[in-house]
Simulated assay, not measured.
Amino acid sequence: MKINENTLLEGQKVVLVPYNEEHVPRYHEWMKSPELQQLTASEPLSLEQEYDMQRSWRDDNDKCTFIILDKQRWADPSVEEEQCMLGDVNIFLTDPTDLSVAELEIMIAEPSYRGRGVGKEVTSMMMSYGVAKLGIKKFQAKIGLDNQVSVAMFKKLRFNEVSVCDVFREVTLELTVDESVRATLQDDVVYMKERDYRQTCSSRHELFSQ
């Protein structure tokens, strides 16, 4: 989506930035992992196909994605942004007749960041952004049956299990955004700050050059 091409979201542990060309090589290396292919139900792509996919995420009106950065590493201007990457988070608008329904996906690609509360923070931030900026009123999450950690996380975020598909070995969870959910999201990410991505990147580079 064009809407977030210059948006940076700053949390307590992470920074979310648009998925740009410079992120593709690291992302491509991640997706060579059989474990991540299984967890994301993805097929391996060539590097050129990965660049095409990145352009699709940026331009298509039914997709919104952010790259997840380690905030502590990113705060050091001498560290390249690509070296701060730890995963990604996506929103798909799945129903052309109802743009308020979205599927939510999160991938913590770097194993050392799992089990540290990063996924919960990122998911809450993305949901808050989806509600406020995209008008999302219902979130869905489709998770592999073997990925019980993710299932448990979404249930903690008040998602309800609505179906299980044995053929694809995945469970579908949903959350309808009512006033109670809105209030909880606001409380959960009260610390989140939205910044101008290009301006912030420029400031980092200036700090490093001083």
Rank of each mutant, 00 (worst) to 15 (best):
residue 67 I to L: 09
residue 84 C to L: 05
residue 202 S to K: 01
residue 177 V to A: 00
residue 108 I to L: 15
residue 3 I to K: 13
residue 73 R to H: 12
residue 75 A to W: 00
residue 137 K to E: 05
residue 101 V to E: 13
residue 175 L to T: 09
residue 96 P to V: 03
residue 166 D to M: 03
residue 141 A to N: 01
residue 1 M to Q: 07
residue 77 P to C: 02
residue 74 W to D: 05
residue 161 E to D: 03
residue 176 T to A: 11
residue 128 S to C: 03
residue 173 L to K: 08
residue 48 E to C: 00
residue 130 G to E: 02
residue 143 I to K: 00
residue 165 C to R: 05
residue 3 I to G: 06
residue 46 S to C: 06
residue 11 G to P: 01
residue 203 S to T: 09
residue 36 L to A: 01
residue 183 A to Y: 04
residue 201 C to G: 07
residue 22 E to C: 08
residue 48 E to Q: 11
residue 154 F to K: 03
residue 111 P to N: 04
residue 114 R to N: 02
residue 5 E to I: 10
residue 142 K to G: 08
residue 41 A to R: 12
residue 151 V to K: 10
residue 152 A to T: 13
residue 35 E to G: 00
residue 168 F to E: 09
residue 61 N to S: 15
residue 52 D to N: 15
residue 85 M to G: 05
residue 23 H to T: 02
residue 22 E to I: 00
residue 81 E to L: 08
residue 40 T to H: 01
residue 172 T to C: 10
residue 195 R to P: 01
residue 115 G to I: 09
residue 141 A to Y: 05
residue 209 S to W: 04
residue 68 I to F: 07
residue 175 L to R: 15
residue 161 E to N: 01
residue 189 V to R: 07
residue 51 Y to C: 02
residue 80 E to H: 12
residue 177 V to L: 00
residue 116 R to F: 01
residue 104 L to Y: 08
residue 153 M to E: 09
residue 190 V to A: 15
residue 78 S to C: 07
residue 4 N to D: 05
residue 69 L to V: 08
residue 109 A to R: 02
residue 37 Q to M: 05
residue 15 V to K: 08
residue 169 R to K: 15
residue 145 L to T: 11
residue 192 M to T: 02
residue 123 T to G: 02
residue 165 C to H: 02
residue 72 Q to A: 12
residue 116 R to M: 04
residue 176 T to N: 02
residue 95 D to N: 15
residue 12 Q to V: 09
residue 27 Y to R: 08
residue 156 K to A: 10
residue 3 I to D: 10
residue 167 V to W: 14
residue 6 N to Q: 04
residue 88 D to L: 13
residue 107 M to W: 01
residue 100 S to V: 04
residue 106 I to H: 06
residue 197 Y to E: 00
residue 31 M to G: 03
residue 42 S to R: 05
residue 64 C to E: 05
residue 99 L to H: 14
residue 182 R to A: 06
residue 129 Y to R: 11
residue 91 I to D: 04
residue 94 T to G: 07
residue 161 E to V: 11
residue 158 R to Y: 14
residue 86 L to H: 03
residue 22 E to P: 05
residue 12 Q to S: 09
residue 105 E to I: 00
residue 40 T to C: 08
residue 186 Q to T: 15
residue 117 G to N: 06
residue 83 Q to A: 15
residue 115 G to D: 08
residue 178 D to N: 14
residue 85 M to E: 11
residue 6 N to F: 03
residue 62 D to Y: 11
residue 57 W to Q: 09
residue 35 E to D: 04
residue 164 V to E: 12
residue 102 A to L: 01
residue 56 S to R: 14
residue 156 K to R: 15
residue 3 I to L: 12
residue 102 A to C: 06
residue 208 F to Y: 12
residue 59 D to W: 11
